[in-house]
């Protein structure tokens, strides 16, 4: 049986090159000066100093976080009732609805986003509003499906028990259904917030070239300007902030669980 374990070895080499090395390269580029070869590496914090010395960069980052946060909130508020109503449907209709929600997700995201351009041309709305529409449209299916899954996994007899014990509909929802569906909401938040912060084709396709989020900034420094060191620094700052916010989300979830248990 041990011989089967050897089948993993080539893959270990592969992940070292294709996953670990790229991550290390981003860190290396972020902390070094432009244009030096591997032999004459010069470490520096200039890239980070540059990011925080000009208010343009922190502002773009702040705007991206704000938009991702609002998108996430809209997705929870609109997605929860949708998931709840689908979960309440009877068997056949339920699976048809789930199929209808997943079907558009199979179509290329850029194609679907480009489709909104034509529709939104008919309305005099701001670039920011268009970006919101694009973000909610692209990411809300993940939220609905996550919440739906946690709602259907729920033990239905708990609802009957709550009712038998004298809870009204609102109380049952707030004290039983909502807390039990929280894991779905949390994983939905992760699936919406993470791609929303770093998205760069939605602002570009819907907001036109002038609406810049942090993803567009990274794209510009890598593709147009060719300043990979500064681009890497921006990516690193973004990745760290995302990691911190994910950590907070998980922690809040964990503490909530502690409360309901006590």
């Amino acid at each position: 049986m041990k011989s089967f374990a050897r089948m993993l070895y080539p893959y270990l080499v592969w992940i070292a090159i294709m996953i670990l090395a790229p991550m290390l390269l981003i860190v290396l580029y972020a902390f070094t000066k432009q244009g030096n070869s591997v032999l004459t590496l010069q470490f520096t914090l200039d890239n980070f100093a540059r990011f925080f010395s000009d208010s343009i960069f922190p502002n773009v980052l702040w705007r991206s976080l704000k938009i991702a946060l609002i998108t996430t909130v809209i997705c929870v508020l609109l997605g929860y009732p949708a998931a709840y109503f689908i979960a309440k449907l009877d068997g056949n209709r339920k699976s048809v609805m789930v199929l209808l929600i997943t079907l558009p997700m199979w179509i290329n995201m850029l194609v679907r986003t480009y489709a909104w351009r034509g529709i939104l041309l008919n309305f005099p709305v701001s670039s920011e509003f268009k970006v919101f529409v694009g973000m909610v449209y692209n990411f809300i299916p993940f939220m609905i499906l996550q919440i739906y899954t946690s709602l259907t996994k729920m033990d239905q007899s708990l609802l009957t028990a709550a009712e038998d014990l004298g809870a009204n509909k609102v109380q049952t929802f707030l004290r039983v259904t909502l807390p039990l569906s929280m894991p779905g909401v949390i994983s939905g938040i992760t699936l919406v917030f993470l791609p929303a912060v770093s998205s760069f084709f939605i602002p570009k396709l819907l907001g036109g070239g002038d609406y810049v989020l942090v993803g567009n900034l990274i794209e510009n420094y890598f593709i147009s300007t060719g300043d990979w060191n500064f681009g890497s620094a921006i990516s690193l700052i973004m990745a760290v902030i995302i990691m911190i916010s994910m950590f907070i989300t998980k922690k809040v979830d964990y503490e909530n669980k502690g409360e309901t248990r006590a």
Binding site: P22, I26, S198, I218, S232, S235
Partner: peptide, 8 residues
């Protein structure tokens, strides 16, 4: 984020 994997 995908963009980080991509530039890596």
């Amino acid at each position: 984020p995908e963009i980080v994997t991509a530039i890596g």
